[in-house]
Amino acid sequence: MRIGKQNQAFTAIATSDSETITVRGLDLCDDLIGKINFTDYFWLLVLGDKPTEAQRDMMDACLVAIAEHGLVPSVQAARMTLAAGPDAWQGAMSAGLLGMGSVVAGSSEAAGRYLAEVIAKAEADGTDIETAAIASLQDHKINKRKVAGLGHPQHSGGDPRADRLLAIADELGVSGRYIETLRILGKHAPGIIERPLPINVSGAIPACILDAGWPLEAIKAVPLLARAAGLSAHLFEEAQRSIGFIMSHKADEAIAYDGKTSSRNTKAAE
């Protein structure tokens, strides 16, 4: 059964025959292996063209910034999965990547879409970004919504990763409308929302790479690729010295049961 339009059965990414493998119009063995770094190859695979030096450096910086973030829930899920199935690296890696949602790591996509929304609103209304940003923040306050890309529970005075990425974007000359919009939001949010809301790394990453030329529709690929590297480190460490069951045990100790009491427990208590 066909669902939707299916009259364009093509791919422009790769092909092969008995003698060659072609990726984005380049010979894998002659033009790419040993001649291109992985960040350039990532950009080429997704967009079809190699990045400029500035685009590569910006992407590199973003990948490094988000690759590792300690024992967050997605990492714990991956490590506990490997502890339960030591031979299932692929399952453990999947557990970690599937745990990247709108709160951790996947928040970069939400921030990128929010920045695009503010810019689009300014263009539609024929106003400037600052006016659109202020109106959006006021609407967030009225409806008690979180502002994507702003705020951090630990770095209330400013997320150092975000500050560094924005500085690199300025140095590389890629700063544009997305970074301008993010900075305007960061300027006005604390006063409008009435609490500290510094620009966080989830806001800086999409702003930087969107201004560098990365497509909005592929934002999620960046934290996914970066976190795969961090998860690899955690899974290798888990295989060498496991803490998966320790984390599981600590969670069991930390969570108290407040459900109904069985008849047997009631009698025992008497």
Rank of each mutant, 00 (worst) to 15 (best):
M1Y: 03
I13R: 08
T22K: 00
T22C: 05
L28M: 00
F38S: 10
D40P: 11
Y41T: 08
K50I: 07
T52F: 02
D60L: 12
D60K: 12
V64G: 08
A65P: 00
A65Y: 03
P73I: 08
L82K: 07
P86T: 07
G91Y: 00
L97K: 10
G101S: 15
S102P: 13
V104S: 12
A105G: 11
A110E: 12
G112K: 00
I119V: 07
A132P: 04
R145Y: 06
V147W: 02
G149K: 01
G151C: 03
L165D: 02
L166M: 07
A167K: 10
I168R: 04
G176P: 05
R177W: 02
R177H: 08
Y178E: 11
Y178A: 09
E180Y: 11
R183I: 06
I193D: 10
L197N: 12
C208E: 03
I209P: 01
I209F: 04
E217S: 13
A218G: 12
K220D: 12
K220M: 11
V222C: 10
P223D: 09
A226P: 00
R227A: 06
E238K: 05
A239P: 04
Q240I: 08
R241T: 15
G244L: 01
K260I: 10
T261M: 14
T266A: 15
T266R: 15
T266W: 14
A268L: 08
A269W: 11
E270C: 15
